[in-house]
Design a protein around this nucleic acid. Structure first.
Length: 371
DNA sequence: TTCAACTTTCCTGATT
DNA sequence: CAATCAGGAAAGTTGA
């Protein structure tokens, strides 16, 4: 049963990480344990720069959740070095944690331990975890093993706490569901690619099993705008309100400046995740988005943003774009009107409706795909 | 390298 | 007044 509880807590932590900011108490503070501060000092003394040189850092190429304490240290020291942060201000005793514990930390916790660097760490960590296509798969693997070994229903765990979706979620997990790791939104036929023909060919999108699916699985702590830290803000944009600027989208920051936003990850985030699919996936997985959006009329495909900025942040995370806002997201949404992927819902704020060129959101489709 | 599709960014103005 | 909506314009990203 211990394993069961552990897995339940893994889930719990995963979800608390998703919505951390909402309730910071959900995530546990990493153990302040008897840890040799010297270790960190040592590590800090010789930070590994994974992106440079032939030698890779111990942590690079491995999922953060699986990092050992040493790898966590390596990573922290790398970040400290990278951001020229004064390590002496860090509470070293609280750095004694493995990757799993690190991943469970809420932004505020990281801020508590690492000060302003906490936001950077959180962002980087998110980047790293989301760069692995199957970030839930490790949980699923555990689940699979667990259920095989125990052959008994999961007992009441943290996951049980008032989440009406827990059971459904677990059931889903046991099936080769298209919604879960590896093939998330790919489960849907991606009309954006084949059905949508109003503009152009509509070809070449959403290859099955591509990153596209990541959508919901990528959900993470956002509600409270996890990347709103001042330092991060500085990093992501300059000073936009300095007089008039030329119309249109300005050039992006140089690779160097972007370095502060990105950790190790492949450059080519495969195309495939379209905004509307992302939205749809959130909607059809209430267990993953509780409180972000809701159906106003499921039959008609009418939905509403409850926490517009949070959704925008999620989308931004998905696209590795921390400066995404609801305003920008909504602009993209409005472009869908022309293509009839979405339909206007006049007079209602934050309300949209799926159009005839969208699919995969109808209940029958969803149910069909789950079976 | 080029192109098309799609998204992002910024802007102005209107509406809620 | 702030948030949101609308939509033009132009540039960035990505896969083919």
């Amino acid at each position: 049963m211990a394993a069961t509880c552990e897995i339940s807590s893994v889930f719990s932590n995963y979800f608390s990480a998703m919505y951390t900011s909402e309730d910071p108490t959900l995530a546990s503070v990493p153990p302040a344990a008897a840890f040799g501060a010297d270790d960190l000092v040592l590590a800090l003394g010789s930070p590994q720069m994974p992106l440079e040189g032939p030698e890779k850092a111990s942590w690079s190429g491995e999922q953060p959740q699986l990092w050992s304490k040493a790898q966590v240290l390596d990573w922290i020291s790398y970040q400290v070095e990278k951001h020229k942060y004064d390590a002496s201000t860090i509470d070293l005793s609280r750095c004694d944690m493995d990757g799993a514990a690190l991943c469970r930390c809420a932004p505020e916790e990281l801020r508590l331990v690492f000060g302003p660097l906490g936001d950077q760490l959180y962002a980087q960590l998110w980047d790293l975890t989301s760069s692995f296509p199957d970030e839930l798969s490790w949980i699923m693997e555990l689940l699979e093993k667990d259920s095989m070994a125990l052959q008994e229903p999961l007992g009441p765990g943290p996951f049980d706490q008032g989440s009406p979706f827990a059971q459904e979620m677990l059931e889903d997990c046991r099936q080769p569901s298209p919604f879960y790791p590896g093939s998330f939104s790919a489960g849907a036929p991606s009309p954006g690619s084949s059905d949508v023909s109003t503009t152009g060919t509509g070809a070449s999108q959403s290859p099955p099993a591509s990153d596209s699916g990541g959508s919901d699985v990528d959900l993470d702590a956002t509600d409270s705008k996890p990347f709103s830290g001042a330092g991060f803000e500085d990093c992501k944009k300059g000073d936009p309100k300095h007089g008039k600027r030329k119309r249109g989208r300005p050039r992006k920051l140089s690779k160097e400046s972007r370095g502060c936003l990105e950790g190790t990850k492949s450059k080519h985030a495969p195309r495939g995740t379209h905004l509307w699919e992302f939205i749809r996936d959130i909607l059809i997985h209430p267990e993953l988005n509780e409180g972000l959006m809701k159906w106003e009329n499921r039959q008609e495909g009418v939905f509403k943003f409850l926490r517009s900025e949070a959704v925008a942040q999620l989308w931004g995370q998905k696209k590795k774009n921390s400066s995404m806002t609801y305003e920008k997201l909504s602009r993209a949404m409005r472009y869908y009107y022309k293509r009839e992927i979405l339909e206007r819902v006049d007079g209602r704020r934050l309300v949209y409706k799926f159009g005839k060129n969208s699919s995969g959101w109808q209940e029958e489709e969803v149910v069909g795909r789950r079976n």
